[in-house]
Simulated scan of single mutants.
Amino acid sequence: MTTIVPLRDDDPALLERLASARDAGQVPLVLDARRPPEQLRAAVATASRADLDGIGWATLTSGSSGTPRVVLRTRASWEESFAAVDDLMGAASAIALPAPASSSLTLFSLAHALSGGPRPLLDDIAAADGFHGTPEGLRRVLDAGSAPGLRAALVGGSHLDPSLRARAEESGIRVTAYYGAAELSFVAVDRGDGLVPFPGVELRVVDGELWVRSPFVASGYAGASGPLRRDGAWATVGDRAELMPGDGGGERLRLLGRADDAILSASATIVPDEVEAELRALPGVRDALVFGLPTGRVGALVAALIEPSGADLPLSELRAAASARLAPAHRPRRWYQGALPRTASGKPARAEALRRVLAGEVRRVD
């Protein structure tokens, strides 16, 4: 009988244990050692009760709070994308993986390594000539100069700022950004001229919602349901998007964020991703998170947490710059400054930003 094999992402022998579980026909579940023990026990119990027939991998979602969902997928759902990833990474032989092994993007690369892919480097990345991780992970590698031989980077998990791409490419690194999800795996890639479908993936937008037809979609969840929905061969996790003509022909995918992140104010529905993109373009802004601040009168106020690239930014400058780029309803009414909260893999954590603001843990700019 197929069973779950719980492993920890801080285990120095993790790759060998993954290989042993795979060779024995079991399903490895790599746990985030930083999460509370009760959450980990609940995740293992949930996965152990699931129907594991045909399942090869169990991965955790990267939410910033609460018990993580367990996503179940076949081995083939990852293996069928290995050749395309090899093409994107060129001749990379050793790949830096700064995100924890419990994150699906790192676990994918470990699975790839077990099937002949680049050698994974989880800790000492000095010998890496490839990279797979989040934009924040790439930024830290560049800041530290810890992988001087880096020549190719596969970047996902959150928005890749154009200035970070340019910085990496000026250092001789070929950058491929991608959009995906734990449930969908790779969906679209951007080599610098916009998002196009990942090889083997079809896209369509229905009523503003992105649907994909792909051999890489997960089988489902263990236990509780999640955002993954199906309509025949098509699947969605609820992301909003539009398909637009590309400059060089063909269509480009424009992401508009998850529908349940939308901010309902008194006069408009605001998509945080759109506001964040404008705020990141402001001088002195390293990164930004936008979220709805609940009120009892006019729905939610648009609030922004700004991570400055240097010294703190005066409120007058932020407001003036935002007024020049954003429609009135989309301009933040509350401004905060500080380091953005992130998940263990480096993704910005919007729900955690709201929690910190409500708890008074973040400095408001007055």
Score class of each variant (00 low, 15 high):
L122S: 02
G220K: 06
A166P: 03
P215A: 02
G130Q: 02
D312R: 02
R254E: 07
R191P: 04
E242P: 03
R34P: 09
L7E: 09
F186I: 08
D273T: 03
F198T: 00
S109V: 01
T3H: 09
E352W: 08
V212T: 13
T74Q: 14
L313F: 11
A224N: 15
T295S: 15
G180R: 03
A126S: 09
L154V: 05
R204M: 14
I95N: 00
S81F: 06
G238Y: 00
A147H: 09
P328H: 15
L184G: 14
V189A: 04
A324T: 05
L253C: 05
V175F: 09
W234T: 08
R229E: 06
A101L: 11
G346H: 09
E80C: 00
A113C: 10
A99L: 05
V271D: 04
V285P: 08
I4D: 08
V217G: 06
G194A: 02
D10T: 13
R240E: 08
R151F: 06
A153E: 02
A320R: 14
S214C: 09
A303Q: 15
L264T: 07
S109D: 14
E242S: 01
P227Q: 02
R165Y: 06
E38Q: 11
E169N: 12
A349M: 07
E307L: 11
